[in-house]
Amino acid sequence: MTIAHTLKIEEDGEILRIQDLTKSYETPQGSLLVLNKISLAIQSRTTIALMGESGSGKSTLLHLIGALDDPDTGSILIDGMEITQLKESEKAALRRNKIGFVFQQFNLIASLTVAENLAFQARLADRLDPTWLAELTHRLGLTQIASRYPEQLSGGQQQRVAVGRALAVKPRLLLADEPTGNLDEKTGDSVLALTLELVEETGCAFLMATHSARLAARLQRQCRLETGVLTCP
């Protein structure tokens, strides 16, 4: 399957399929199994909350799905394409074209302005839609602060920029790792509300790792990761 093929956007249908995914880490005490034969399928316009205790492997699962890390065994298909065997450059292309990632620490590019951060991934993927970007900027309430730098923003503002950056490329899959973990309850709620609204409009799938049952309840499905096993009711 070629990259060109994978770039073909499918409006509906299954976006992500994980099969028997296993991941372990080497520690001084020996091998630590974090994910044990996990399987999961996500359709477009689906929102899933991934819950579990600290160290349960939520971030690891998101990193594997986001092509940031490699599993020990198992397969990950995004839009029907197996990603675990991709080369570094192909994984990079996949990330910039199909995946949006929102981190707990925001991870904005400190040397670029808000406007530049928002457009960065879309520009990299050569898929910048100025109208969509302008709307996104407006909807996220970033218009007034577009020329500021990340260090000049509050945590909530930074996270809204991170959400905007991830959605500007109109990804097939939006991954968020504790996106509200560094925000107060009110700001966290508003950021999530906006994210869900935009997810609905873009039609992508949304997978969010969180500790908060309250926030998780706002998503369509709630999965729990415990001792390396994923349970999705």
Binding site: G66, L68, E88, S89, K91, A92, A93, L94, R95, R96, N97, I99, F101, F103, N107, L108, I109, A110, S111, F120, Q121, L124, A125, R165
Partner: peptide
């Protein structure tokens, strides 16, 4: 500084 750019989709070689 580099990690977010990598996560967004720029390979380590680049």
């Amino acid at each position: 500084q580099v990690a977010p750019v990598w996560a967004i989709g720029v390979s380590r070689q680049i």
